[in-house]
């Protein structure tokens, strides 16, 4: 089924010079495996289009259920040279979460169950895996 990444994952982004990094994190092993298949360097490069001029590198971090994307040439020179409002790439995280992916229904259901469970625990003050 088609979902936006924000429905099954969350993210944080930052900068290193003219490169923005986006760490994409998900909730279950199954979802992680599905994201490894779906959210490829090519797809991320296509997603960002002209916002990323220097290519995309991806690192897999299965122990954190995370993928790290380096978006080179994305920050108008980066640092203090950049004229961008978001010169430090802080909002690239949610820009990636806009991407649409096709995931097996049971994977999406698994993430939803897990998110639901975690949010319930958060609110009850009894979190934990």
């Amino acid at each position: 089924m088609k979902v936006q990444l924000r429905e099954v994952a969350f993210a944080r982004s930052g900068d290193k010079g003219d490169t923005a990094n986006v760490g994409l994190i998900t909730y279950t092993e199954e979802a992680y495996e599905a994201l490894v298949r779906e959210v490829t360097e090519e797809r991320v490069e296509g997603h960002f289009g002209e916002l990323c001029q220097g290519g995309v590198e991806r690192y897999e971090i299965p122990n954190l259920r995370a993928l790290n994307f380096l978006l080179h040439g994305s920050l108008d020179g980066g640092g203090t040279r950049s004229l961008m409002l978001d010169a430090q790439g802080k909002t690239f995280s949610t820009a990636l979460l806009r991407m649409e992916v096709d995931l097996p229904e049971e994977v999406v259901d698994g993430v939803r169950d897990r998110m639901h469970e975690e949010r319930r625990r958060w609110r009850e003050g009894d979190d934990g895996e």
Binding site: A66, N68, E129
Partner: peptide, 20 residues
């Protein structure tokens, strides 16, 4: 504030290059 696997993982990937 909150400390969970999620909040800690978010900080771990912040400004990350090659994780290894």
């Amino acid at each position: 504030g909150r400390v969970t696997w999620a909040t800690v993982t978010e900080q771990l990937v912040y400004e990350m290059g090659d994780p290894a």
